[in-house]
Design a protein around this nucleic acid. Structure first.
Lengths: 184, 184
DNA sequence: CGATATAACGAACACTGTGTTTCATAGTGA
DNA sequence: TCACTATGAAACACAGTGTTCGTTATATCG
């Protein structure tokens, strides 16, 4: 029932090779030829599994479990996802730096933004916000602030701990959010 | 004293061709060959003026005057740059969409972020903030929120007017900022 | 274990795009 | 007018992509 062992092996080798190469040269500089050399895998084999370089990148996303965090939204607490996510990111530092970092692929960041936008939107609605154009703009601002912090850490522009990042995020954003929610 | 007329002509043709092509196909899909075909310019001529595709992109930045806005910081008013910048962006819609949009080049966004970060930082210091790691994180949040709105508009995800964007930005961010500035 | 399916290999291929070179031509500024 | 130099055209080596095909290796299942 489970996949052929050779298939799993090949896919894993290719994914690992890409991550290693991104950390060395940056995503853009990595070629398919690089990947198959590093993975020690035939060219035709690569294209039997992936059609593009980017597909390998996105296939890695499924293993970044922290992007699908428990929606354990404490009822009263806004943005409960924040601290756990910063912590998960710190744990998987190597992988995250490769995928999200300065040299990582833009597509991954775009996906991450979408996922977080959904979380934020859910939180705001749960906290009494009413679906509207203004709420969408608020979501954009909150997500922007969060992703900004994430990027700053990933790119080594700050050495703050997850707790500090979480605190900075809440301090910057919560007052405005609460003010808006309390009188729409 | 002034440059050779042929040089000006060639550079202008190339820049215009790139903008037009980005709007049609997206930055990544545009090749140097595309550009010189569209600009009707010899291959060697292109490389006599620019070494990379990206250089053409950045050469366009100098003409985006709104990125160097008047630092007309009303003393008491935080983020005075916000509304004027949204307005300028709206005016230069075509160029901005090409350079900053979903299909525009990442480098331009990175530069824009830097510029805005400096503005924000200056504003916060002028408003009584003290230089610190915490302030840097706050700057990151504020810039993230602003760029988020800018990107949302550029990508057509919102039809809000400059005034509305400015209002959303301030509403989301100002309360938190003021709270932090008032008791560090 | 053995038979069958199928994954992987490796080499070759056409194709697209890059960046360089060379040289004749045409436009420019003094 | 005249010296200067930007341009255009063509050809080039090079690197990377994505496909094809015959052979070999190795899972999986009976």
């Amino acid at each position: 029932m489970s996949e052929d062992r050779r298939v799993r092996r090949t896919r894993r080798l290719i994914q690992e090779a890409l991550v290693a190469l991104i950390l060395e040269k940056g995503y853009d500089a990595v070629t398919v030829t690089d990947i198959i050399d590093r993975a020690d895998v035939g060219r035709s084999t690569f294209y039997a599994h992936f059609t593009h370089k980017q597909e390998v990148l996105l296939s890695n996303l499924d293993e970044m479990a922290f992007l699908h965090p428990t929606p354990a939204t404490d009822a009263g607490r806004l943005f409960a996802f924040s601290l756990p996510m910063f912590e998960h990111v710190q744990e998987q530092e190597r992988l995250v730096r490769a995928l999200l970092g300065r040299h990582g692929g833009g597509p991954v960041i775009a996906r991450g933004e979408q996922m977080i936008a959904e979380l934020v939107r859910g939180d705001l609605l749960a906290a009494g916000g009413r679906s509207s154009a203004a709420l969408d703009l608020l979501v954009v601002c909150v997500v922007g602030a969060f992703m900004g912090l994430l990027r700053a850490w990933v790119n080594g522009e700050t050495t703050a701990t997850p707790t500090e990042l979480d605190a900075a995020f809440r301090a910057a954003v919560e007052p405005g959010v609460r003010a808006i929610l309390n009188r729409p």
